[in-house]
Design a protein around this nucleic acid. Structure first.
Lengths: 336, 336
DNA sequence: TTGAAAGCGCTAACAC
DNA sequence: GTGTTAGCGCTTTCAA
């Protein structure tokens, strides 16, 4: 593997000159530059970014920390869409993406900060970790530039990107009440997700404005999974046979809920209307197709990368970016 | 950021000793080691893997080169499942994964080899590139250890992981002929995919064994997309109104084909049976659910990572791993 | 069991 | 415009 030293020797110049010529500095004689570029080509030279990183103290990589990057979660293409968004932006820059995952026991021993410092990433985008994750605090308070996806925390070096979950859930609630529903329940994710808290807040508010209470017994957690949603729906149906609508904090849970309803011999949307959240791919394909709150997931990733790289390259302070959302009415819901 | 130099100074030893102690060499006095480990902790030391990489000439990273890692392709969760498989294996080792993508014009200027050399990845897993990709040859013939997913090429430093596409398509064909179908067509991907060639071969063979010809006009390309599949099906229907079965080289195209059939007022499977390939997530959810050839996609990634890392760590020669497949009969196909 | 010294490939003062 | 030199943080001979 050719190095600048080899080029220097062959071209009869110093390594400094080679470095300068190859990096496009202006103070190099045009003839010298030509010669250097030429010999670089002849020697099939590739710069060694590791060596450069070492001296520049910048690796030009950003870590992508995804919790639960595992098979089961592939169902939910939320994660992959965020990733493509990140990649869309990053590929326009000179940053590369390093994948970190936290499901392995090996990495559990290390804090995220350690992980990032060892791999020398310049910054990190964090996705899918729970609010009770012991290392979240450390990252938010830490020195490593970081952008959180869907976790509204700001620190000295930490910003976030999310959608307005309160507004989204509010619209879902408004939609249902305006459609004449009164016996309404909600399937939420779990208590350690910010989005769960926010969606509950927005939804409750919308109902309350119409004078409809959402008592604790009308809320069940479905852990964001299809099975969890199914079981949660079953419990809700058990408790209240007059239900006419269920709002689910994720499409996957909504699909589970639809299964539950069908298994009870009831129909969606004739007997019970269902609204999901996320607009995952599947939501268009299930029968009936799912009414849901769409998020621009790709933009979530894109904006996260944009913010992080702005922090890195232009010392921009971390902030928060809110990506738009939208109610998409399909066939799983109807007027009473 | 503390370095071994800092530790050496504080502990009153040389940097050599620190390096040895921290790397678990045996020839270090137990007391010295303890002291060093302790001061390392006090100084909140993290090793700098970049510096290590430079001197070791090993980056302990593997590149994941995915072509078309873009939004549209997220539909097909094939890619993401392969990725989780790769990650499953890699996370058990000390290798990290660096994401490369080739959709950006920037990177198009560089060959894969250049990309890999610059980023100093120890090896690379390549997924989703076409057989007419100008740089494929260079990688297969090159010096960088590499494992191809679904491209059966072996080189001095290149192996591959795939399923037996010929056998899979053969089973699909066998299934259809045994179900009594005679007027059969096929929707293939495109001419620059190995899997397309192989699936055509296997399928043709199965039909031929029952004395059924598959003339060129009964084969249309659908470019592996839902829309492409829909259009291909329309063309086939146009040409042969007696069709009773269509085999599609991907589930996505099969879903497109079902749309086409429905739009023509025909029913699946009553009028026309459909078989797909891949067993993507969607195939279970569409109506009717799709009969398909399942591949263990996760294993594809897992085995790719396993092979590559064996090549890297144990100098194992590259080989080929065949991952199992399986016909899954659902509701899009029936006996004549 | 420990340390001094060289060097991985590169960049960046600084001097000429 | 160009070269000399030092040094990024680490590993690894070699010698003590």
């Amino acid at each position: 593997m050719a190095t600048i030293k080899d080029i220097a020797k062959k071209a009869g110049v110093s390594i400094t000159t080679v470095s300068r010529a190859l990096n496009g500095y202006s103070d190099v004689n045009e003839d010298t530059r030509k010669k250097i570029v030429e010999t670089a080509k002849i020697l099939n030279y590739s710069p060694n970014s590791i060596a450069r990183s070492l001296v520049m103290k910048k690796s030009k990589t950003i870590g992508l920390l995804v919790s639960g990057f595992i098979r089961e979660n592939a169902k939910d293409n939320f994660m992959i869409e965020v990733m493509t968004g990140i990649n869309d932006f990053a590929s326009q820059t000179d940053y590369d993406i390093v994948l970190f995952t936290t499901n392995s026991s090996k990495q559990r021993e290390k804090t995220y900060t350690q992980l990032c410092r060892e791999r020398q990433v310049d910054g990190v985008i964090i996705q899918g970790i729970r609010t009770d994750d012991p290392y979240l605090e450390e990252v938010v308070e830490g020195e490593i530039p970081c952008v959180l996806v869907d976790i509204p925390r700001i620190g000295k070096h930490a910003g976030y990107v999310s959608t307005d979950n309160i507004a989204g859930a509010y619209e879902a609630g408004k939609y249902l009440t305006e459609a004449g529903h009164k016996e309404i329940a909600m399937i939420n994710g779990h208590d350690y997700a910010f989005v769960s808290k926010e969606r509950l807040e927005g939804f409750t508010r919308a109902l309350l404005e119409e004078g409809i209470e959402l008592p604790a017994q009308s809320i069940e957690n479905g852990e964001f999974s299809e099975e969890g949603g199914e079981e949660a729906a079953l419990r809700l149906l058990e408790k209240n046979s007059d239900l006419t609508a269920i709002f689910c904090s994720s499409d996957l849970m909504a699909i589970g809920a639809m299964n539950a309803i069908k298994s009870k011999g009831l129909r969606v949307p004739e007997d019970i209307s269902i609204i999901g959240y996320d607009n995952i791919l599947l939501s268009r394909y299930v029968q009936p197709s799912l009414t849901t709150i769409a998020q621009d997931t790709n933009a979530l990733g894109y904006e996260a990368a944009k913010m992080l790289i702005a922090m890195l390259d232009q010392q921009k302070p971390p902030g928060n970016t809110i990506v738009k959302h939208e109610l998409i009415v399909r066939n799983s819901s109807k007027k009473r």
